[in-house]
Design a protein around this nucleic acid. Sequence first.
RNA 1: GCGCCGAUAGUGUAGUGGUUAUCACCGUGGCUUGCCAAGCCAUGAACUCGGGUUCGAAUCCCGAUCGGCGCACCA
Length: 595
Amino acid sequence: MDIYDSVIELAKRRGFLWNSFEIYGGTAGFYDYGPLGAMLKRRIENIWRDIYVINEGYYEIESPTIGIENVFVASGHVGGFSDPLTECQKCHESFRADHLVEDVASNPDTLTPDELSVIIKENNIKCPDCGGELGGVYEFNLMFSTSIGPGSKRVGYLRPETAQGMFVDFPRLLRFYRDKLPFGVTQIGKVYRNEISPRQGVIRLREFTQAEAEIFVDPRDKSHPGFDSIRDYTLSLYSDHNQSSGQDQIDMSLGEAVDLGIIAHQFLAYALAMTHQFLVRVGVSPERLRFRQHMKDEMAHYAIDCWDAEILSDRFGWVEIVGIADRTDYDLNAHSRVSKTDLSVYVEYDEPRVVEKVVVKPDMGKIGPAFKGKAKAVMDALKSMEFGNLSYSKSNDMISIQVDGEQVDIPPDMYEVQQVTETIHGENIVPHVIEPSFGIDRIIYAVLEHAFREEEVQGEDDVKSKNEVRDEDKGRIVLGLKSEVAPVQAAVLPLLTREELKGPAKEIESALKHKGVMAAYDDSGTIGRRYRRNDEIGTPYSITVDYDTLEDGTVTIRDRDSMKQVRAPADTIADTIHDLIHGYTRFEDAGTPIA
RNA sequence: GCGCCGAUAGUGUAGUGGUUAUCACCGUGGCUUGCCAAGCCAUGAACUCGGGUUCGAAUCCCGAUCGGCGCACCA
């Protein structure tokens, strides 16, 4: 049993992750989050919100999980991600049918699968690899489709990413942020991809949760106002160059990486730093985390630079858990084109620019009668003329222009050339998008695997030596979750199952709950067993009520990782635990150490 | 989607063509228990599904589903 198996077994047994629809045999690519898993997930999402929404100020929105066809036509998911495939009946290799018929069909990408099948048959096209017979063409699209309303007239798709919902809201968002760049927006939600063969547990799912930020920036200025604060922040970077030259990732400060041009610009570097902070805060091991740059041929054609946060897993090696890309203006332009909506921002200059221009002023009183129906076209043609030099403009020549494909001569008395001074206050630009995209489910797996450990427990041969029954079984399984993400934050345990201890313990449990601390009361089994039970689900602190509690009002707090204990007052225990969980108090300072 | 391998209580497992399917952990109730998976009593819980062969199938065969690995795929 490797670590993956151990983690999945623990997650299943203790209520973190379950295969969905189990009583019906299950379906690949779907997982349920059990009680502890859902709690862990929510806590991780809320830390993400704390960083992106509260601290960076990128408000969260919520758009439908079903999108209309045009949205995904514009995004390229309908055309680009819907491939007609055919499979060789002999060697079972799959091919793009539209590519195979390129030589015999003029418009292969507009053909339906049935039409492609016919063409392949008629032209006797064989498998390019082995010459075998090709099977029928079928449409393969990663998107789940559905129909909207009765009659199945309108096709809808389950979104394959949350990003499009934010791009589509761009005009509203721009107005919300009072027409100024840069601004960002976030969304956490379910997305759907009909994977061919989902595997590896929660690593590749058909329904999963993304947390994405879309940050709209001025393409001419990708500096970040907070860059100085992260200039010395050092990350493990695995650049395109390092990959192609066979080197490993190297530690480098972000300042250096931007200066050397390894990371395209400050905004992207800042996004990397935030990603790192988030991942480490939720419990990804920094030693098993790196940022890998996409190679040139791997990057989407529209992207400028793209980095994946990857975690090292025991079984799968490096696994991508976050993608951070500069998507340029690709998406906004695409939606602008398909929706016929202006998705640009008017950016004011710092100083208005005074521009001297030479313009042609048509004399419509003469042009109108002279050209009648064509007058408007002539006027437009004249106005759109550009005068590169003033000398020409000053001459009073006959102007020859093309109007509707025929040459028209405009005599000098029909126009006037003027030099004008214009004050321009700004211009319209389409913003570029910086997009960090988090795969929450993969992050959860990373957190579980990196937190998982089995350790030897030493030094209890004195008191319990009379019960030397299971001396082989001294190991304990610990889920060393960060206290901030642990589902159960404190266990409340009466030392013995006796009424006089149960009462005070239950009071402490309810005091903790009032403070918003997820506390679990447990009086079943010996104290050691209950500690172990809580170690396994990552409960960071256990509070034990004993007979001293009844006398001097103190309880034992036991630290999951060190197994050390301190004695602290019971009446302020909720505050103490709260402060411990959020890192305001260190465990050693939470009470008096006991041997 | 292709190939190989697998599927037994909640978890990990043993096992055989033939009566109540093994063991451990686990859960629950009780006794015990004064700080790191003690003990005792009682109790709960499984042969993935469908078809076939057979007097009889959890066991053999076929298919499906799920899982693992390799290939393909991963905008």
